Simulated scan of single mutants.
Amino acid sequence: MKQETSSSAVSASLNGVRNSPRKMRLIANLIRNKEIQNAIDLLTYSQKRKVSFIFKKLLLSLLSNWKKKNDQSENEKFLYIKEIRVNQGKTLKRLRPVPQGRGHRIRKRSSNIIVVLGQK
């Protein structure tokens, strides 16, 4: 899959978040294709506190990256989340003891998040 990159595209990524991708995608689907300020407001009042805090920090970082790349005179009002992907990261494998000397495997999953900003 070839990825198209333009000079105006600004992105931010976060790797190794200690939350499962399935839980992260619930919030990612909530803020996909939203304006950046609306997305931050949604995350502020979301019920999933831990995940929404991670996404909020990532969006603020994305906004900071955009400000560094573009001059301040451009309007932030027309910025929106063009693309957001949550992929599976490394999985830690642990054993939990169960009766009769056996052990069941526990998988502690992690996520990789990529957010791309676009202008309307």
Score class of each variant (00 low, 15 high):
Leu43Met: 02
Lys56Leu: 04
Ile31His: 00
Met24Lys: 04
Gln47Lys: 12
Leu30Cys: 00
Arg96Gln: 11
Lys56Thr: 03
Phe53Cys: 10
Met1Gly: 14
Lys108Trp: 01
Ser6His: 05
Glu74Leu: 15
Ile54Ser: 00
Leu92Asp: 09
Leu60Met: 12
Asn65Lys: 03
Ala12Val: 00
Phe53His: 10
Ile40Ser: 01
Lys57His: 05
Pro21Val: 02
Leu26Pro: 01
Ala39Lys: 00
His104Gly: 10
Asn19Gly: 09
Lys67Asn: 12
Asn29Leu: 05
Val115Arg: 00
Ser111Cys: 01
Lys69Gly: 07
Gln72Arg: 11
Asn29Val: 03
Lys2Met: 13
Arg109Cys: 08
Lys34Phe: 08
Ser20Pro: 03
Ile81Trp: 01
Gly16Ser: 05
Lys69Val: 08
Met1Asp: 13
Met24Thr: 00
Arg109Ile: 09
Pro21Cys: 05
Arg109Leu: 11
Glu74Thr: 14
Asp71Tyr: 13
Ile36Pro: 04
Lys93Gln: 08
Val98Asn: 06
Ser46Cys: 10
Met1Trp: 12
Ile113Ala: 02
Gly118Cys: 01
Lys48Leu: 13
Lys50Ser: 11
Pro97Ser: 09
Ser11His: 07
Ile114Leu: 14
Arg94Ile: 08
Gln72Lys: 13
Arg96Val: 11
Leu43Ser: 02
Tyr45Ser: 15
Ile81Phe: 03
Leu117Thr: 02
Asn65Met: 05
Asn19Asp: 12
Arg94Phe: 09
Ile27Gln: 00
Leu95Ile: 09
Val17Ile: 06
Gly89Met: 03
Ile114His: 11
Val17Asp: 01
Glu4Lys: 07
Lys108Tyr: 04
Asn38Trp: 11
Lys69Gln: 12
Leu63Lys: 02
Lys90Phe: 12
Arg85Val: 06
Lys68Gly: 07
Ser46Trp: 04
Gln72Val: 10
Ser61Ala: 08
Gly16Val: 01
Lys93Ser: 06
Gln100Ile: 10
Gly103Tyr: 12
Gln37Met: 13
Tyr45Ile: 14
Phe53Thr: 12
Arg32Phe: 02
Tyr80His: 00
Leu42Glu: 08
Tyr45Arg: 15
Ser73Cys: 06
Asp71His: 14
Ala12Tyr: 00
Ser61Cys: 04
Arg85Gln: 07
Ala12Asn: 06
Asn112Glu: 04
Leu30Trp: 03
Thr44Ile: 08
Asp41Met: 12
Arg96Asn: 10
Glu83Ala: 09
Ser7Cys: 07
Lys56Tyr: 07
Glu35Asn: 15
Asn33Ala: 08
Ser13Val: 10
Lys56Trp: 04
Phe55Met: 04
Lys48Gln: 14
Ala28Val: 05
Asp71Gln: 14
Gly118Thr: 01
Arg105Ala: 12
Asp41Trp: 09
Ser46Tyr: 06
Leu63Ala: 08
Asn38Phe: 12
Asn70Gly: 13
Ile113Gln: 02
Lys120Trp: 09
Asp41Gly: 09
Lys2Cys: 09
Gln37Tyr: 13
Lys23Glu: 02
Asn15Cys: 13
Leu60Lys: 12
Tyr80Pro: 05
Arg107Thr: 14
Arg105Leu: 13
Glu4Tyr: 06
Leu30Arg: 02
Gln37Asp: 15
Lys120Gly: 11
Met1Val: 13
Gln88Gly: 04
